[in-house]
Simulated scan of single mutants.
Amino acid sequence: MNTVWIVLPVLLVLMFQLGIELDRNAFAALFRRPAAIVAGLLGQLVALPLIAFGVGLLFRLPPVWFMGLMLIACCPGGSSSNVFSMLARGDVALSVTLTALSSLITLFTIPLVMGLVSRFVSVHAETPVDLPAGKLLLQNFVLLFLPMLGGALFGRLRPAAARRVHALLGRVSFPALLLLAALFFMQYARVIVENFAVLGLAAGVLILLAVGAGSLVSRGFRLGRAARRTIVIEVGMQNAAQAIAIAASPLVFNDGEMAVPAIVYALLMNVILLVYLKLLPKSSVGELPDRG
Score class of each variant (00 low, 15 high):
Thr3Gly: 04
Ile6Ser: 00
Pro9Tyr: 00
Gln17Cys: 04
Glu21Val: 12
Asn25Asp: 15
Arg32Asp: 09
Arg32Tyr: 13
Ala36Leu: 13
Ile37Val: 14
Gln44Val: 10
Val46Asp: 12
Ala47Thr: 04
Ala47Phe: 08
Leu48Lys: 02
Val55Asp: 00
Pro62Phe: 01
Pro63Tyr: 00
Val64Gln: 05
Met67Gln: 08
Leu69His: 03
Met70Asn: 06
Ser79Lys: 13
Ser81Ala: 07
Ser81Tyr: 06
Asn82Lys: 12
Val83Thr: 13
Met86His: 15
Met86Arg: 15
Ala88Leu: 03
Asp91Leu: 04
Leu94Glu: 00
Leu101Trp: 12
Ile105Asn: 09
Val113Asn: 01
Arg119Glu: 11
Phe120His: 13
His124Phe: 13
Ala125Arg: 12
Gly134Ala: 08
Leu138Arg: 12
Phe141Ala: 11
Phe145Ile: 12
Pro147Arg: 09
Leu157Thr: 14
Pro159Lys: 12
Ala162Val: 09
Ala162Lys: 13
Arg163Glu: 14
Arg164Leu: 04
Val165Asn: 11
Gly170Ile: 01
Phe174Cys: 02
Ala176Trp: 03
Leu178Cys: 08
Ala182Asp: 01
Leu183His: 03
Phe185Pro: 04
Tyr188Cys: 14
Val193Ser: 10
Asn195Trp: 09
Leu199Lys: 13
Gly200Phe: 02
Leu201Lys: 14
Ala202Asn: 11
Gly204Pro: 05
Gly204Asp: 08
Ala210His: 11
Ala213Ser: 09
Phe221Lys: 12
Arg225Ala: 10
Ala227Val: 07
Arg228Pro: 01
Arg228Ile: 06
Arg229Phe: 05
Ile233Phe: 01
Glu234Pro: 02
Met237Leu: 10
Ala241Thr: 09
Ala241Val: 07
Ala243Phe: 01
Ala245Tyr: 11
Ala247His: 09
Pro250Phe: 04
Glu257Cys: 04
Val271Lys: 08
Val271Met: 07
Leu279Arg: 15
